[in-house]
């Protein structure tokens, strides 16, 4: 009878083991670049990861403690019969303990309030409009079924003018510069998700939402849609290219603009057609 507690112990141990192994495997841990699995590329990402790890340790400790208490109670207080078939030990008769109730109310309450307050500044840095960088907007990003349409201001520095540069599923920015984008949606709700930079923000039709992030490693990253937006939701994938220098970014932009001028295409090219689905 009492050995049923082992099943519970095993399940708990298995869970702890899986979570403990996770940081040692890049595939199991928070997503980072393959070349540098231990490095988080964005400032917000590092803060968020630190908070994540604090909560992981904290909940891990609580988990181990409560599961241990549970398994111990299951094992120690299992009913056993003596030779005559009577209970070897009576159950203790008590209705609870006021002191314990107070203790295990106040301590978790303190921890939780601390946790909540501790998160505030990061949350404010990532989302509050007052914390938005005072830089010109990098691009206006519009989600539509099922692609990300990017509109760069072009040479005049203003979005919505004739010299705008259009790309599809292709967002470019410069290393170590905070990129500010204006997020929109032209049809249904999408969600702008940069797993490696730990940024997520829904794009809501009728709203323009500022999103800002940075990246300290040049390279190619992935942009995903995280909010169900229709049949093609799963493949609403974009590239985020981080340029080493501003000059490189500007060169890319100039080349793109020239290309756009040649092809006389003011609107984004190449709508995905129904036949493209897998």
């Amino acid at each position: 009878m009492r050995y049923w507690s082992l099943i519970f112990a095993l399940a708990a141990a298995f869970s702890v083991g899986a979570f403990a192994y996770a940081p040692f495997s890049p595939d199991w841990w928070l997503p980072n670049t393959v070349a540098e699995p231990g490095h988080v590329v964005s400032k917000a990402g590092r803060e968020i990861d630190a908070l994540f790890i604090i909560i992981l340790w904290l909940t891990g400790g609580v988990f181990v403690a409560t599961q241990a208490a549970l398994v111990w109670a299951q094992f120690r207080y299992a009913d056993r019969l003596d030779a005559e078939g009577k209970p070897a030990r009576p159950a203790r008769y008590f209705h609870g303990s006021q002191r314990l109730e107070v203790i295990w109310t106040i301590i978790p309450a303190g921890i939780l309030v601390f946790l909540a307050l501790y998160q505030m500044s990061t949350w404010a840095d990532v989302k509050f409009r007052s914390a938005a960088p005072r830089t010109p907007v990098l691009a206006e990003l519009t989600g539509r079924q099922f692609q990300w349409m990017v509109k760069y201001p072009g040479p005049d520095g203003k979005v919505g003018t004739a010299d705008d540069l259009f790309t599809v599923n292709d967002l470019h920015l410069v290393k170590d510069e905070t990129a500010l984008i204006h997020l929109k949606s032209s049809d249904v709700i999408h969600s702008f998700f940069l797993p490696q930079m730990r940024i997520k923000q829904d794009a809501v039709p009728g709203m323009t939402i500022p999103v800002w992030f940075d990246c300290d490693r040049a390279g190619r990253y992935e942009l995903a849609c995280a909010e169900l937006c229709g049949w093609g939701h799963y493949k609403m994938r974009g590239d985020v290219v981080v340029h080493e220098t501003r000059a490189e970014f500007e060169a890319w932009q100039a080349a793109k603009l020239a290309e756009q001028g040649r092809s006389q295409v003011g609107e984004p090219e190449g709508e995905t057609s129904e036949g493209d689905r897998q």
Binding site: R129, R134, G157, K158, H182, T208, P210
Partner: peptide, 8 residues
């Protein structure tokens, strides 16, 4: 509603 977005 928050202030409209635009250039700084």
């Amino acid at each position: 509603l928050p202030d409209p977005l635009g250039e700084p």
